[in-house]
Every structure is written in C-alpha cells, then in structure tokens.
Amino acid sequence: MKKQFLIVMIFFFSFMITGCNVIEEWKAERIIKEYYQAIIDENYDKAFKQLQLYDYNSKTEIGHFTEGTTLSNKEAKAFYLKKIHVLKEQKYKLIDFEIVEVEYEDGHSFWHHIKLKGEQDGQKFEWREVADIYKGKLVISEKDDPNTKYRDGKMYFEIEELKEN
C-alpha cells in the first residue's frame, strides 16, 4: 500500500511540475506570437506593449534587461517609435515568423528559437533569433538580424550610434 501511494505521489508531483511549466510555455508563446504578428501588421503600439524595456549603451554594450529603463512609458514609447522609423527608412518588413524550437536549460528555464522571414529594400531575408520572457515581457537576444536593435526593448541610447555599426 505504501509503495502504491509513493508511486501515485511521484506521478502527481511530476505532473504538477510539468503542468506548471506547460502553462508558462503557453503564456510565453502567446506573448511571442502577439509581438511578431504586431510587427508584421505594423501595429507598433501593440508590439511595444509586449517588450521588456531596458536602458542600453551601444558603445559600451552595458545594459541588462533585468535592470529596466529610466525612461517614462511615454518617453520609452516615443523612443521605440523613432527606432521603428529607422526600419521604415531602410524599407524593412517582417513577413512571417515561426517558433521552431523551445530550448530548456534546467527543466524549468526555457526560451524560444524563432525563424523570421522578411524583406529589406527589396531583398528577402531569413534570420533566426531567440526570444525569452522576463516578468511577462518579451526579451529578444542571440539574433542574426542586424536590425533587431530597432524593434527590441533596448532604450536610452543614441539611434545614430546604431546606424554607424
């Protein structure tokens, strides 16, 4: 009887741990899909709301998403729209995306690998990037797309600095 109880408890706790992670994974996928679809639809207000915003110095490469931004929401949104303007000037258009893999680090921490299809100045591209969720907000990292910096959550730097790089 004790053996059966122990087996049932092991299955129960295993299911609870896995089930909780599945729910977090679904939440992450919802945020990821909302963000990329908003970029495709050019609904930049919606895309902005999905992002984890953080201050970043592109010269020193100092800034971490866990530190947030010193900008007010209004200032951050205006800055984000300036970054989007750079994309529009470069005739950058995201056409499609696909979540191709979910990678687990320790059975609990995970991130999504995203394949992007788009067009820039008439040239088609296919890039990959990694999307993570921090406190319910999207963090984009490990990216191939050199223009990600104009649509991610990095804030409070000179946009002209990025044009030079």
Rank of each mutant, 00 (worst) to 15 (best):
65 F>I: 01
62 I>T: 12
65 F>L: 01
121 D>S: 05
69 T>L: 08
81 L>Y: 12
73 N>V: 09
44 Y>C: 01
127 W>C: 06
47 A>L: 07
115 K>L: 14
28 A>C: 10
95 I>C: 01
97 F>M: 03
22 V>H: 06
111 W>R: 06
54 Y>N: 08
55 D>A: 09
124 K>L: 14
136 G>F: 08
57 N>A: 05
42 E>W: 06
102 V>A: 03
97 F>N: 02
100 V>H: 04
85 H>W: 01
36 Y>G: 07
110 F>S: 06
64 H>Q: 12
75 E>M: 11
113 H>G: 02
127 W>P: 02
120 Q>C: 05
102 V>N: 08
85 H>E: 10
117 K>P: 03
120 Q>S: 11
136 G>N: 05
104 Y>D: 07
130 V>T: 11
55 D>P: 13
21 N>S: 01
43 N>S: 02
18 T>S: 10
127 W>I: 04
107 G>D: 15
95 I>F: 03
47 A>T: 09
94 L>E: 00
48 F>D: 08
61 E>Y: 15
19 G>H: 05
25 E>R: 15
140 I>E: 11
82 K>Q: 13
79 F>P: 07
76 A>I: 12
92 Y>F: 09
93 K>D: 03
24 E>K: 11
17 I>S: 12
140 I>M: 10
64 H>V: 13
72 S>Q: 03
114 I>R: 11
123 Q>G: 01
105 E>F: 12
68 G>F: 10
96 D>K: 04
115 K>E: 15
28 A>I: 15
96 D>C: 00
65 F>W: 12
47 A>G: 06
26 W>T: 15
101 E>S: 05
106 D>V: 09
